[in-house]
Amino acid sequence: MPLVAFQRGFARRMLPLCVLAALSVAILPPLSYGHMAREQLRRQAEIYARLLAHDLGRSAVESPLWKYRTDKILLSTERHRFQRDIAFVFIRDCAGRVVADSEALGIGTGRTGGESAGAFIRDSSGRVGSVEVVLDPASHRTILRLLTTASVLFGLLLGAVLYLYPARVVGRQAAALARAQRQLRMLDVQEEERRRIARELHDGVGQALTALQIELARAQKGDPEPVARAGVLAEEALDEIRTAVHALRPLSLEQQDLETALRTLLERFELRSGIRASVRITGSLNRVSPSRAQVVYRILQEALTNTAKHAHATEVGAVFAVEKKRAGVFHTGQRLRI
């Protein structure tokens, strides 16, 4: 559970950062390009307005009636390379009245939203009119649309990679840690088992051999009685050793498969405790590895011991659902679940 919590916490912390990275990549390039494109278009409009104002200024120097020939000059804009980018051109006289506009002459795209710039028309006496040029940002818009699409896609991809890859790595590490923890628990169980065996050997076999040593010493002094007791003590020591060996590795598992061993265990339990025992197994337990088979055997053994000791039950049943990876011990008293 702490691992899952860690994983979820990590994902929760990573998500905003990934979203931020994705947004930055998706938004900033189109935004920057849009700004630069507008600036470039504005400068182009400025240059074009000045060129046009220069032509009109020359015309104004030639004739005070310059404003009546502006349409011809406007038509001649096709000579300039900016012509294809023109949205609108307005030429105003000194009173601010529009004397020529591109729309009336069929020049320009007529699309709004472009960048505009103005310039004064000057003759020898000073300013006599003005030019306003609006350039169409259509070509930039196409590039901007492509850039935006690419940036958004790349941003999403980057965000996904930034989020999913570390999460996957953390997930793998968490799984490895969980495996290590399980192994550690197994080692703890094994250590506990070793301590128990050592205790049993010390308390059982050790005591019996000590007593045997004493009886043999007395027998050496000519007393015939201890010889018989020594035989009993040797018998007890042998039993103790068998029990310890059995505890280390169940004999049933050495001679039988897991399913048969479990059934034998329950039969012996029933005989020993007088509690009626049954087992139901769904699927096959025989593909379980030897180490796991031992764990399963021990768990059932422990559960049965606990039932006998504490449940005061009259009936006990063990259930193994192999496909569902579940097992349980039930009795007529308090329910136990593994």
Partner: peptide, 10 residues
């Protein structure tokens, strides 16, 4: 946006 241009009467 450009401001409105003004000029002197020719």
């Amino acid at each position: 946006r450009p401001s409105q241009l003004r000029c002197a009467e020719p």
